[in-house]
Amino acid sequence: MDPHANVEVTVNGVRHRRAVEPRLLLSDFLRHELGLTGTHVGCEHGVCGACTVLLDGDAVRSCLMFAVQADGHDVTTVEGLSDGSGETLHPLQAAFREAHGLQCGFCTPGVLMTLVPFLREHPDPDERQIREALSGNLCRCTGYQNIVAAVRLACGAPSSPRA
């Protein structure tokens, strides 16, 4: 059997076509085949959330999908959030910068890609909802306080005294 399969996938609006081994994870495809290293790889078993991307608009773990499974689908990575020039940040990214919502930044791409669809569905979340939404993303700098503050800032809510 030919060890390679064709995958044609639209990533951040650009169509890519590659022949890859079926065992290649979507996370590795994005990083190594397409050079989109904003998608980070942490645990590779679906716990840390660093590799979260959007598949047809929904947040998924890209380490728990094979690249060939994305054939015909639409993927958005953290690189797709800003305008591409790096000059204009997505409002959520701007809020993260403003509120110091990151320290080392390793978890940040996954956190952002989790929060974008969450905020689409919950434009005015309370703190508990924000923390529940973040429960699938690990931050080892213990920076959750400022992540929550950044989300509240992005929603136009005043920062709570505790956050």
């Binding site: 598949l55 947040a59 773990r61 728990l64 989790t114 429960s135 699938g136």
Partner: peptide, 9 residues
């Protein structure tokens, strides 16, 4: 059941 990212798949 786990997180939304898991339930989406």
């Amino acid at each position: 059941i786990a997180h939304p990212q898991i339930r989406n798949r």
